[in-house]
């Protein structure tokens, strides 16, 4: 057998050996949708529906007297003002392409909820937005109770509202805190030091506050 034929045969055997790993090659050429260039669709239904969803989770005050998305169930800014939709649409989060589906799902649930409970919906706003705050809450308790097929996805969306409010997940933290991000301010997240970092020289009561376990080992471990 010549070297060339031997080489071909060996190459063929190698290819056969690699056949079970065809899925690897497929991974290289089939890329998931590019999640880094998304913008929220210009749809008058989607934005207020998602705002109403976020506002039901972390309620806040209305932005104006004619604000329908925010129910105004609590004083001070809520998840919407804290940037819930900014985070939902934040490219690294990667869920922007799913937002129209989420909004449509919420509105479908709202229509069903209204029919079940004999509620007449205002046709000038999306169905979820047309629900009163108590009904929005009752509906989200149903949707987010963990037993439905959509629960995982809706819980992930809910988590974004929480992360927007409690962590400003779409912003550099130092910028968010210094500019008075409403959620971070509401939970009392501290300002950084002058150098833009968080660090503390006073951090301890500096005194013994309990008796150690009598059988603690020399290196501080349990027996």
């Amino acid at each position: 057998m010549s070297d060339a034929v031997d080489l071909k045969r060996r190459r063929l055997l190698q290819l056969v050996a690699l056949a079970p790993f065809a899925w690897q090659a497929r991974r290289w050429v089939v890329r998931p949708p590019d999640a880094f260039a998304q913008t929220l669709p210009d749809d008058p239904t989607i934005v207020p529906t998602l705002e109403a969803f976020a506002d039901t989770l972390i309620p806040g005050e209305k932005r104006s007297s004619d604000d329908r998305a925010i129910a105004g169930a609590a004083a001070g800014p809520g998840a919407v003002q804290a940037g819930a939709l900014d985070l939902m649409n934040f490219p690294p989060v990667g869920v922007a392409p799913a937002l129209p589906g989420f909004a449509a799902g919420l509105n479908a649930h709202a229509v069903q909820y209204a029919a079940t409970n004999g509620i007449a919906l205002d046709p000038t706003v999306p169905p979820f937005v047309a629900l009163a705050f108590g009904d929005r809450t009752a509906l989200l308790v149903e949707i987010l109770d963990g037993s439905g097929p959509d629960e995982l996805a809706y819980f992930a969306l809910a988590a974004l509202a929480f992360l927007a409010y409690h962590t400003a997940g779409h912003l550099p933290l130092v910028d968010a805190v210094r500019s008075g991000h409403p959620g971070l301010a509401a939970i009392g997240f501290p300002q950084p030091q002058a150098d833009g970092l968080w660090h503390y020289s006073d951090f301890s009561y500096r005194r013994a506050l309990a008796t150690r376990h009598p059988e603690t080992s020399k290196r501080g471990n349990p027996p």
Partner: peptide, 29 residues
């Protein structure tokens, strides 16, 4: 080995709460 002066406020409160409830509490290595 953390000494008590190394334990931050939260750990201090937990130790004091344990102590007040009759339990021991250790700084954690």
């Amino acid at each position: 080995q953390q000494r008590w002066k190394d334990v931050a406020y939260a750990g201090g409160v937990w130790a004091a709460a344990c102590n007040r409830a009759g339990h021991t509490c250790n700084p954690v290595p």
